[in-house]
């Protein structure tokens, strides 16, 4: 402020302060953009790319797609998935791995999507259920397969039984979106 006169400094200061006050008053009368969470629960919608909790979809016959290969467990960077499986002999005499318990610790999960990408059968996915707060730490450990559920029997065994590359799994899930985008930009 050395190069300005005393009065000039004051005028400058008052000017800048009044501009500030004008701005804040303008915002005072603007519309508020607040989303009121518990009140808006029914309309709250997230894009399906949001990852809040891992789930294993079951169909109405209480069947899931998990073959207990353990690829997700291996892909997980910090061991938040534990797959317990047992070997059973099927009717036609083949030995087959079967899922007993699919444990998922949401308290440990870092939602990196590696497990979903690693899954060759699309047996697991992330859902948009964010209300997961609990009082008891043990409740954070979830069992994803429903009691009494079993593997979905396919009419024919899938040809690509060997684990596909994680990269290959991703486009499958997002295929519609991809094509749409490309179309639009052309």
């Amino acid at each position: 402020m050395n190069n300005k006169s005393y009065l000039g400094g004051i005028i400058e200061a008052v000017k800048s302060l009044s501009i500030g006050m004008k701005t804040s008053l303008k915002v005072f009368f603007e519309k508020h953009e607040t989303e009121q969470y518990p009140e808006n629960r029914s309309t709250l919608h997230f894009s399906d790319r949001n990852r809040f909790c891992l789930e294993m979809p079951h169909n109405d016959k209480n069947e899931h797609k998990c073959i207990a290969c353990g690829l997700c467990q291996m892909a997980c960077p910090n061991d938040s998935i534990t797959v317990t499986s047992e070997m059973v002999t099927t009717e036609d005499g083949k030995k087959k791995r079967q899922l007993v318990k699919y444990e998922y610790n949401i308290g440990q999960c870092m939602f990196c999507n590696l497990c979903v990408q690693a899954c060759p059968h699309g047996a697991i996915r992330f859902n948009q259920e964010f209300e997961n707060a609990v009082f008891d730490k043990n409740k954070l450990l979830m069992q994803l397969n429903q009691p009494g559920s079993k593997v979905e029997e396919k009419p024919k065994p899938a040809p690509a039984a060997k684990p596909a590359a994680p990269a290959a799994a991703a486009p499958k899930a997002e295929a519609p979106a991809t094509t749409e985008t490309t179309k639009k930009e052309e």
């Binding site: 804040s24 915002v27 005072f28 603007e30 508020h32 953009e33 607040t34 009121q36």
Partner: peptide, 10 residues
């Protein structure tokens, strides 16, 4: 709250 484009206690 109003100056900060929020709605304040409600």
């Amino acid at each position: 709250a109003f100056f900060q484009c929020r709605i304040g206690p409600n």
